[in-house]
Design a protein around this nucleic acid. Structure first.
Length: 488
RNA sequence: GCCCCGUUCGUCUAGCGGUUUAGGACACCGCCCUCUCAAGGCGGAGGUCACGGGUUCGAAUCCCGUACGGGGUACCA
């Protein structure tokens, strides 16, 4: 009988969804998909200072954009709610009561000042700096007296002293062993009555019956402590799988100075969900060491914890950009125009109505531009000259080099008379065959001829393919553009 | 300080003792194509598998140590 697979992603809503968090969520999601398990979203908002509902909404929206949908979570609910930590306080107290009854915890009346003092001494003497358990053996009478006197106190977990070490098998890192001498009776309830992280995360995972804890490796070192909580609760251990960090190009933790770190920024910059998904899946996991382009389908049918890498991975924006272009080239014209539309609107290059009315025109831009861009946000600057009517802004350097020359003038004149021909049907093939006669006619190299026309049409020495551009711009506008520059 | 973890081309990785002259992808270089830029095709360079010891007939692969990096060691999460 295989146990039910239940995994969770538990972000703190202290900011947008980070690339690292997205990958953690993705691995959890993929694992659940693969095994037909349940994926749970839990919001860890116990840090009331920095947590905001706006951030939660933002994280939710980024997860959805990436296609990482959950089966249980805030709003939608589920059988193990609530799914927002700040609403779970009664559960933490309930579990604590049980731990008190089973004598797994004890109150500690040491002041923070005293604790600090002891720690400093231990440090100076190079001894273990953990709590010395001085309150562990207080008699019932002493406890009662201190409590009645209203002495502030915390609650600590009573670790089994007879034990030698805490051992567990991490699904990614393999066997991990930490000597018991390195663990202390850590605090699970603060003086102010709030529970600590290492305690609540366990309570949540136990009560939500999480079978696999897949999370960042910054939690690896705390896992032994958490195992102590599981054991105190008499709960079975989940499988732990820790994921190493994602780093910036300098080998330091990925941060703002490495560029965009939040999923929502990538969305805005015009990365495709499928591309980011593919890239993130590959950042620390591999199918076979050969395959780099993988559909969600492929990933979810093959994802496994044992192929996750232990090494921290450097995030490479260039590879992501390459991958995004691959996906752009695969998406097709109609999907492209739909994805491009928001950018057209925000730059005021077109209205929704124009796009709808000239759908096929916009779609025919797709094959021209797609192999020259890596993100959707780069499209407009490449195509704006196609949408500027009779006028085109001229790049100074291009103008100087291609238009303000003796050859340039001749090319433009010849071109103008050729294109003015009423017989010429205005399409790429006809325009091309007509203009192809020019180099020989003028005794100039093709490159010189076409670069001149290109600058007249597009305003720049670099543009989308010339003849296709001319067809899309239209005869009238093209003639107007050439006339304008040749009459200078 | 102490504890835990990691270390294969610049980067992501394959590799689980012999099939490896260490494979693939991005980036890089060259050639072809070509109206520019791209895209594409073909080819190339790039790794003494962090270092030092072992174990073994044989090690990137197993063991020990060192160095470097990361994490933990909080009444942070």
């Amino acid at each position: 009988m295989s146990k039910e697979i239940r995994v969770r992603f538990a972000p703190s809503p202290t900011g947008f969804l980070h690339i690292g968090g997205a990958r953690t969520a993705l691995y959890n999601w993929a694992y659940a998909q693969r095994l037909g398990g349940t994926f749970i979203l839990r919001i860890e908002d116990t840090d009331q200072e920095r947590s905001t509902p706006e951030n939660t909404a933002q994280i939710v929206s980024s997860l959805k954009w990436l296609g990482l949908t959950w089966d249980e979570g805030p709003e939608m609910g589920g059988a193990f709610g609530p799914y927002i930590q700040s609403e779970r306080a009664p559960l933490y107290s309930e579990v604590l009561e049980q731990l008190k009854q089973t004598q797994k915890v004890y109150p500690c009346f040491c002041t923070p000042e005293l604790l600090n003092e002891k720690r400093e001494i231990a440090q100076a003497e190079k001894r273990y700096t953990g709590y010395d358990r001085s309150c562990r053996d207080l008699s019932e009478a002493e406890v009662e007296q201190l409590t009645l006197a209203g002495t502030p106190h915390v609650w600590r977990l009573k670790l089994p002293l007879e034990r030698e070490s805490v051992d567990f098998e991490d699904a990614v890192f393999g066997p991990i062993s930490v000597p018991m001498s390195q663990l202390d009776d850590f605090i699970i309830l603060r003086t102010d009555g709030t529970p600590t992280y290492n305690y609540v995360v366990c309570v949540d995972d136990v009560l939500m019956q999480i079978s696999h804890v897949i999370r960042g490796d910054d939690h690896l070192s705390n896992t032994p402590k958490q195992i102590m909580v599981y054991e105190a609760m008499g709960a079975p251990l989940p499988v732990f799988a820790h994921l190493s960090m994602i780093l910036g190009s300098d080998g330091k933790r990925l941060s703002k100075r490495h560029g965009a770190t939040s999923v929502d920024t990538y969305e805005q910059e015009g990365f495709l969900s499928d591309a980011l998904f593919n890239y993130l899946a590959l950042l620390g996991w591999s199918l076979d060491g050969q395959t780099t382009l993988m559909s969600r389908e492929l990933i979810t049918t093959h994802f496994s914890l044992d192929r996750i890498s232990k090494n921290p991975a450097v995030f490479d924006p260039e590879k992501l950009a390459w991958m995004n272009q691959v996906y752009l080239k695969e998406m097709g014209a109609a999907a492209f125009v739909a994805a491009w539309e928001p950018y057209l609107l925000s730059d005021g290059l077109a209205t929704s109505e124009e796009i709808a009315n000239r759908q096929s025109w916009f779609e025919s831009v797709y094959p021209l531009v797609v192999e020259r861009i890596h993100t959707l946000s780069e499209v407009n600057e490449k195509v704006s000259y196609l949408l500027s009517g009779n006028y085109v802004e001229l790049d100074e350097k291009s103008q100087e080099k291609c238009l303000q020359t003796e050859e340039g003038g001749r090319v433009l004149q010849a071109c103008l008379s050729l294109l003015s021909n009423q017989e010429l049907s205005w399409n790429t093939a006809s325009i091309e065959s007509a203009l192809r006669t020019l180099p020989e006619q003028l005794g100039l190299k093709p490159k010189v001829v076409f670069q001149t026309i290109r600058v007249a049409i597009s305003g720049n020495m670099v543009s989308l393919p010339l003849f296709e551009s001319m067809e899309l711009i239209g005869k009238e506008a093209c003639l107007a553009r050439i006339e304008r520059v040749s009459s200078r």
